[in-house]
Design a protein around this nucleic acid. Structure first.
Lengths: 174, 174
DNA sequence: ACTATTTTGTTCTAATTAGAACCAAATAGG
DNA sequence: CCTATTTGGTTCTAATTAGAACAAAATAGT
């Protein structure tokens, strides 16, 4: 029986599906002695040149305070290096080391094969429909943020901007 | 341009939609000086009697090591109390205090109104379709776990059981 | 009745999360 | 050219995450 006060079942399912996926994906990355965020960064750096912290944060959705710590740990593992930018003294360029590149070339195709198993019974249309449904939901969350004056309750400003910031457009992989 | 190695865009969208929803939901719970996991526990305890740690962990998908810490902090806030079980000395029964009940009665309807804004433009069919699609994805993740012998690579056992454990059936709210 | 196994919640650890405060560098504006 | 503002990355904080190890209690099996 449904309790008298409950979040919509669809949101519960969103959280649960997300958690199940993370658990599944982490099982493989743990065999590489990497956490999911660490692997995500290796994947992102392997696909681009001259990545700054700012760009990496945008692509991986990791906030900058957190990102500094993760990069430190990847540096300690010898997989990532920081290079000072020649054009902006505030910036550092992040690159995979030789070991990081070797890991990228071996582990990423393996991981993608592993992840693609999820969609064994899906048609391309099924995948496109699900992706569109999720995008719609994400846009609705942002739209929900913007109802009214932008204030949820008296005294709480800026929440519309905050959700939009998370939702901001960007290109790139997970 | 799509990078040569990337996770399926639909999974990227799942992660992003989930994060956007959490950010949105947290904006409201922060006005109550509660984090999302804390609020989730208040919501769950307010809807049930005689909740044990085990049952609460199952309903909220919070692992037990984490749950102990969150309950401690809610106890410190005077919102939750532990009561020894009369039937099993290992167990403690978790209940909302008077203050916790007052908070539940005021804050939860407000939060549900806030969350329901997301679905302003959705028909009941839209919501049901999305929920079914997410459930299918979650089941596919579990099915992906079970391909082959249950071993991802040599030396890694039990991952099928691990994902199934996360995916285990249960009733209740988020 | 006894032994072996499982279960419940706690403690502990390493990593991540989000975000504020900070400082130096870059940019905007007059 | 100067002042004000914004930006990029670091440091710091509190909370959460996942999961192993543990001890005591309950259950299973003989």
């Amino acid at each position: 029986m449904s309790p008298p006060f409950a979040l919509p079942a669809v949101l519960h399912e969103l959280v649960r599906t997300h958690q199940t996926f993370l658990t599944y994906a982490a099982i493989h990355t743990h065999t590489l002695d990497l956490t999911l965020p660490q692997f995500d960064i290796i994947l992102t750096l392997g696909n681009a040149l001259d990545m700054t912290f700012k760009r990496l944060g945008e692509k991986t959705l990791i906030t900058k305070g957190t990102l500094t710590g993760i990069i430190n740990r990847l540096e300690d593992k010898g997989l990532v290096q920081r290079v000072a930018s020649k054009t902006d003294s505030r910036c550092q360029i992040l690159r995979l080391t030789s070991a990081g590149t070797v890991l990228f070339e071996h582990a990423v195709p393996e991981h993608l094969d592993y992840v693609h198993r999820i969609f064994k019974g899906y048609s391309p249309e099924d995948i496109a429909t699900l992706e569109a449904a999720l995008l719609r939901l994400r846009k609705s969350v942002v739209a929900g943020s913007c109802v009214g004056s932008g204030k949820l309750v008296d005294g709480v400003d800026g929440w519309c901007d905050k959700v939009k910031d998370v939702c901001k457009n960007y290109q790139g992989s997970l």
